[in-house]
């Protein structure tokens, strides 16, 4: 005689093991591919090759000269703005730039306005150049950037 072992309805247990396997795999995948991205931005510099006929330049177009002097180790020793020594203080540089271009000039159209030529010692650490560019190109008031000079160029490199 056949005995049917019909049990009354049992609860169907969900098989958790396989799901947890997959879920952990997913978790590991996402953890490994996770990377904190640092936000980056650019200082745009438009610098065509200097044309040989420099005769058409008048005095008002002459760039503001910013000279950065380094010591042997590449540390900044002095900032010269149009031959005025400003020490190593970038805030003072910003104040001097403000004094040169004036605060009441109003917004200038993009790509207009005075130009700064950065003439740096060869071995100066690049970070100082970026700090100088930051100082001349603007400042932040209550989180809002105020632009000072947008046209920046480099002098020819000084050979070691």
């Amino acid at each position: 005689m056949k005995i049917r072992n019909h049990e009354p309805d049992t609860k169907v247990e969900l098989q958790m093991t396989s799901m947890i396997d997959v879920v952990f795999l997913l978790l590991i995948f996402f953890i490994l591919t996770f990377k904190i991205v640092e936000l980056e931005g650019d200082f745009s510099i438009r610098m065509p090759l200097a044309s040989t006929d420099a005769g058409q330049m008048d005095d008002s177009q002459l760039p503001i000269k910013l000279r950065l002097i380094a010591n042997e180790q590449g540390q900044l020793t002095s900032i010269l703005l149009n031959d005025n020594n400003l020490g190593t203080d970038f805030d003072q540089l910003r104040a001097s730039i403000l004094g040169i271009i004036g605060t009441d000039a109003g917004p200038v159209p993009a790509g207009e306005g005075p130009e700064v030529e950065i003439d740096t010692d060869y071995n100066l650490r690049y970070e100082n150049v970026v700090n100088a560019i930051t100082a001349v190109s603007g400042y932040k008031v209550d989180g809002q950037p105020v632009k000072l000079i947008e046209k920046i160029k480099f002098a020819p490199p000084r050979r070691e």
Partner: peptide, 8 residues
């Protein structure tokens, strides 16, 4: 920390 001249 690279020398600025290299960038130039």
């Amino acid at each position: 920390d690279v020398a600025a001249g290299e960038v130039q």
